[in-house]
């Protein structure tokens, strides 16, 4: 059983938003909504500044509050890789999942259902990387199986310092930021 995750090298990321644009066209994300985005976090006083640039999206948490708060089971862990998905035809649009997500990764699609990053599962099932990963001009994103010790992502996570977002939220996110 695979366990899909993503590692993003913040040392390489320039925050160009190509991942955001690629997601938009690949998945037909409607105008005014984004499934992924760029966050820039700067510390310090000019000119001594530390800037971290991150490509962010649904963390596909292993302990996903959106899944546990969903009243219909529309939000679920996919059989493949534990990817968190929404079954649109089961979603009633109650927004509990949105309110429960510490990352604000979800939104209500104009068609009424809760929507978010799917890790491009339709591509992954064809053996491709998610659109954001495959387009990145800096090659800063690695997608893969966290349970496979020989996967590039496992190697990177084993050898490099990294962090995830809001670990105190206790959601066990599967996106990691290499620093």
């Amino acid at each position: 059983m695979a366990r899909y995750g993503m590692a993003i090298d913040t040392k390489l990321c320039v925050g160009c938003m190509d991942c955001v644009v690629a997601c938009k066209t690949e998945n037909n994300v409607p105008e005014g909504y984004n499934r992924d985005w760029i966050t820039e976090e700067a510390f310090g006083k000019f000119p001594n500044i530390n800037l971290e640039i991150r490509s962010e999206r649904c963390n596909h948490c292993e302990n996903a509050p959106c899944v546990s708060s969903c009243p219909t089971g529309a939000s679920h862990y996919h059989d493949i890789g534990g990817v968190v998905l929404v079954e649109y035809n089961e979603c009633i649009g109650c927004k509990a999942c949105i309110a429960s997500c510490p990352y604000d990764a979800r939104f209500i699609h104009p068609d009424g259902y809760a929507d978010k990053c799917t890790f491009c599962i339709h591509r992954v099932e064809e053996g491709k990387d998610p659109a954001c990963v495959s387009v990145c001009p800096t090659n800063c994103m690695i997608f893969g199986d966290l349970d496979d010790p020989n996967s590039e992502i496992s190697k990177q996570l084993n050898s490099r310092k990294h962090h995830s977002l809001k670990p105190v939220a206790g959601t066990n996110p599967k996106i990691f930021y290499l620093t």
């Binding site: 909504y33 820039e40 700067a42 962010e56």
Partner: peptide
């Protein structure tokens, strides 16, 4: 100083 900016601007 701690500055945080995001490009996310999702409706609602």
């Amino acid at each position: 100083m701690h500055e945080i900016t995001t490009t996310r601007n999702n409706h609602l």
